[in-house]
Nucleic acid binder design. Structure first.
Lengths: 226, 226
DNA sequence: GCCCCCCGTCACGAGCCCGTCACAAAACCA
DNA sequence: TGGTTTTGTGACGGGCTCGTGACGGGGGGC
């Protein structure tokens, strides 16, 4: 019933922290302290999700990510990346590496648990249809980190993508700026709420005509059209 | 309305700094200069959140953390840790013991306030079960921030919407102007009670025939028809 | 080292929401 | 019926909110 999670990190303290919290949250957790060890375990018994530190001494998180994605039996395995700097996230969740989501250090245990659950939930969806969210001419594929407008791919940055996904997850429902800060920025909330405006402007710009689907509710927040 | 926060720190300067900024941000702040004193206050009157220095002379922040978490009546109390060093170890220890977030010294007042708010927000959970309120031809959907009269959408401003929602929440019950000021305007009571009249006029206007559902109770206030 | 991209901030401007005022209307009281 | 109090209403100015363009910093790729 409960999902099995492999955590790979070379720092014993951090590893223990993650293990402790995910166990508390009801997951079956196994650990590895190096990339090599992690890959070994993956071959023996594939878990339902991998939490992977980007910075590892021997095999980097990048390499592991790539190896997982290129192995047919593991290609669909959800990956949650731990990154030291939030600037790295573009590569991580972009085309290059194909992680499902990321959590920037330092993170709170609660946030980690939430994101693990979110990724598992997405993956657990109807296997054929995947977890693609589609509204009007807009199509978003969280697993692949891709976005299409009328079939044409739009390249979004990590923040833009999360912002759009969050809004589209509950169509018609107003999200306050505070709420968006929680969901998109997570624990790294050192930004003005006005920052959202800027990202939204860029997002609308990139989406072109479909940008109108994101509605402004003055004095309240933003809403994705139903 | 505004959350109560207990700040525990042995450094008077820092304590004052935190107290000042959180007070400015609209919180009710109480302070303690030692772990023992902090625990004492916790037992007397539990706040909504504790800001806790990890390094305290008598009882360490860790111990307080542990004691809070092991006390059933306090187990859910959000804790924000202040750590002197941003090293991983502090973070790990704090989190493992159940702190909700941490702020590394030196920190900016803004960051502290932001994190306090974020923790409180997360603990508060989703802002009420947004059930649709419906009476007669009028339908109000707080989640979507939408209002319909006989199926046709009426565009309301933020204040108008809150005013209508408040009145509709208790149909048949008279709301005094003071009450409405509290509920709709909240802490910013810098408004004449006559302002309500104007908003109500505009609201009735927009609602058209359904505007009659808002009844005036002379000398008392307003009431939504049953 | 250089350039590019992403991100966060700021300043400016437009639009409109909001609050107030003054006056009209209505209700209450004698 | 007249005076008083309370509420409705129209108009107006200020200020808040949001959109937008520009800028700088920081990191990675080349």
């Amino acid at each position: 019933m409960s999902a099995r999670i492999l955590v790979v990190d070379d720092e014993p303290d951090l590893l223990e922290l993650v293990r402790f919290n995910l166990t508390q949250a009801g997951f079956q957790v196994t650990t590895a302290t190096s990339g090599r060890e992690g890959l070994e375990q993956l071959k023996n018994a594939a878990p339902d999700l991998v939490v992977l530190d980007l910075m590892l001494p021997d095999v980097s998180g990048n390499d592991i990510c790539r190896q997982i994605r290129s192995d047919p039996s593991l290609a669909e395995l959800p990956i949650l990346m731990l990154t030291a700097k939030s600037e790295e996230v573009d590569r991580v969740v972009g085309f290059e590496l194909g992680a499902d989501d990321y959590v920037a250090k330092p993170f709170s245990p609660r946030e980690l648990t939430l994101r693990v659950r979110a990724v598992l939930r997405r993956r657990a969806g109807p296997p054929a249809a995947g977890s693609i969210i589609e509204h009007g001419a807009l199509r978003v594929d969280p697993d692949r980190h891709r976005c299409f407008v009328e079939g044409e791919e739009i390249e979004l940055t990590a923040k833009e993508f999360r912002l759009l996904s969050t809004l589209m997850a509950k169509p018609g429902r107003v999200m306050t700026r505070e709420r968006l800060l929680d969901e998109v920025w997570g624990s790294e909330i050192t930004v003005t709420s006005r920052t959202i405006d800027t990202h939204l402007k860029r997002l609308r710009e990139k989406l072109g005509p479909a940008g109108d689907l994101i509605e402004t509710v003055r004095g309240v927040g933003y809403r994705f059209a139903e």
